[in-house]
Computed example of a mutant assay.
Amino acid sequence: MVDYTKRPKQPAAPPPQQQPPPPPPGPPSAGYEQWGPPAAPQQQHGAPPPAPQQQHGAPPPAPGVSLGKVTLTKSAPSVSLTKTAGTTGVLRVNLNWNARPAAPQGGGFLKRLAGAASGGIDLDLGCLYEYADGSRGVIQALGNAFRGQHTLPNGELVAWLDGDDRSGRNTGGENLLIDLRHTAHIRRILVFAFIYQGTPNWADADAVVTLFPASGPQVEIRLDEHDPRARLCAIASFTNQGGQLVVNREVRYVHGGQDVLDQQYGWGMNWAPGRK
């Protein structure tokens, strides 16, 4: 259980040149941000360098890149990224969704008016990570944890977010970047999406996550199962299996915040209510 009355102060923010530009202040969130050390000791490394800037939108394919697509489903939920994409280049995990669903047509004027006044849907992309040295953390816009808490001994990043799209109208959506050169340093990564603002309406959001490797086919995971009672969905897991980075479709809805997701997947970290 998290003791909210004894929550430690947040650590001081790193210098501006080491922190992505923070998004404008937003409303309080029902989400959670990590605080304090995890249940098991972590190995802390040096301060991370500035996150590489990544432009929204799919980059033009490089020569020799396959434009095929692999769709993960219940019947075929897994694929080895090491076999299809190799261990070089940066993998872009892209979340796109419909931020402005159509207003309901039935139920009378007041119901349609309430639906229009509820505003759009703001989804946040994030992940829990565990590296080979046992260090664990979260990467998400909430709490400005765009790069997590850990880097490699040489200061390089394994994974990071490129920004926070609050409108859902950016054609590039939100992107989590994973450097496949560091596959050996990854134990597991769990990618999730969280409805930060708006009524939980996964059906109208019509969210899809697409993996864009530097080479090899794209990998698509559609959130084609819905739970209107949940604000958070575990989408995909990456696990290092004998040196191969295997991605598995999850699409598992969570009744609660990131702390409940942590419990269900056994990360063992400390959490407190957070905001952007």
Rank of each mutant, 00 (worst) to 15 (best):
H255C: 09
V90G: 00
G68A: 08
T71A: 03
K74R: 14
A85W: 03
A207V: 02
P23I: 02
V79N: 01
C127P: 01
T199W: 11
Q53A: 10
L142R: 04
G216K: 00
V251L: 05
P217Y: 00
D206A: 09
Q55W: 05
V209I: 14
Q43I: 15
A141T: 05
A12M: 07
V260I: 15
Q140S: 09
P24Y: 09
G64V: 09
P23S: 04
V209K: 00
L67A: 08
A230G: 04
R252D: 10
Q140P: 04
R222P: 01
F238K: 01
L180G: 03
P273L: 08
T171W: 11
P101E: 09
Q18F: 15
S78E: 15
N270L: 04
P48V: 03
P8F: 07
Q18N: 15
N240T: 06
G115F: 12
S29W: 06
D179H: 06
P25D: 13
Q149E: 15
E156R: 14
K276M: 13
S80H: 10
R136Y: 07
H150V: 11
D133I: 10
P77F: 06
Q18A: 13
R92A: 03
P11D: 07
Q54L: 07
Q43M: 11
R188W: 04
T171I: 09
N96K: 13
L245S: 03
L125G: 02
G243R: 09
R92V: 00
Q197F: 11
A76W: 07
N98I: 14
R222V: 00
P8R: 13
P52C: 03
Q241F: 08
V65W: 04
Q18K: 14
W35N: 14
